[in-house]
Design a binder for these strands. Structure first.
Lengths: 182, 182
DNA sequence: CAGGACTGTCGAGGATAATCAACAGGGGCG
DNA sequence: CGCCCCTGTTGATTATCCTCGACAGTCCTG
């Protein structure tokens, strides 16, 4: 999380505030601010949140700016895709893992026989995908359908939804979610 | 920073990962993950960053989702505007301070006589404003102009820029910056 | 039912974040 | 100059994060 200190200092000085003044407004000690700005310690989420609050910022704005920039490259080899699931059940391989400030989550999914997704909290997003191999039972709200190669889906993530592999072998889906509230 | 734990747990379980598995991938101990998920401690930025990385997420995505939602209200009284500058030099009063995931920063600025902005790092953004009162010398790149009531500006923030109050009294500007890399 | 592999929680310790109180370096002003 | 008020840095102490290992519960398998 490099650059946190430099960015914080830029924010503070731009407002013409001293460390002590910012400390008083945020409830964090001025020495802590000094150490954070010089990258000599990594603040807790609570601490950083308090400081950003006094500067009129939020965590998301702060890190959105920090992590912004163009991706390092446009192409990703199959072997490079980062695994964020578990291959023995449901493998989720992330496309464009080093794209800094993504607006979309694209995944190559691979379901082991019988694998089922966990119940998820409702979130405002749109989710679409297409089955590439096998057979997947998709439930959205009160509707259920078995999708096979070539079949697709598109729904609002706010509705309760789940996926279950009903093929005796492996099933594969390519999916996209936006915004990436994954 | 409430909800961090719940959101983290949702992310982990959705991928079918146990605490120990996530601990191994992130390099953070499973007990720390347990404590964080139950909101019994506030992780450091480094720690949370490591965990999110193993889940294929970034800080900005994580907090963007966490802080999302509709604003509590559409109207803000003059007295309510939050001060993020210093009234004796340059006062910056934030409009819509509780708008959760803003794409824009709008400020009511008030310059004391002789006040000057600090040098700022280059950032990719657009900045516009209009002078309401007094006289402000605005420098953008190699150009300088003195703007008075009714005069306005619009420039790319990547160019070095600064503001200086050249009025014997107080000068006022209403400005907007997007995205809010402030 | 016993054994194993998994789940998450808990307690004691060491590592680190955060605080408080000094300290040192500018300017400005009488 | 000598004093004041500001700036940010540093050392010693306390509080908190973080780790390691132990513990208890669940589920599957022999």
């Amino acid at each position: 999380m490099a650059m946190v200190g430099a960015k914080l200092k830029a924010l503070r000085t731009r407002r013409g505030l001293g460390m002590r003044e910012l400390a008083a407004r945020s409830g964090i000690s001025h020495s802590a601010i000094s150490l954070i700005e010089r990258e000599r310690m990594s603040p807790s989420v609570d601490t950083l949140g308090a400081i950003l609050g006094a500067l009129g910022t939020t965590m998301s704005s702060f890190f959105a700016d920090l992590e912004s920039g163009l991706p390092s490259r446009p192409f990703y080899r199959a072997e490079e895709l980062v695994e964020i699931g578990r291959p023995d059940r449901i493998s989720y391989r992330l496309i464009g893992m080093d794209y800094p400030n993504r607006r979309m989550l694209m995944l190559a999914e691979r379901y082991a026989p019988g694998a089922t997704t966990e119940a998820s909290v409702a979130h405002r997003a749109e989710e679409a995908g297409i089955v590439m191999r096998g057979a997947v039972e998709v439930t959205v709200g009160d509707r259920t359908a078995v999708l096979r190669a070539g079949d697709a889906y598109y729904f609002d993530s706010q509705q309760p939804h789940s996926f279950r592999n009903v093929d005796p072998g492996i099933s594969e889906i390519v999916s996209a979610i936006t915004p990436p509230t994954y």
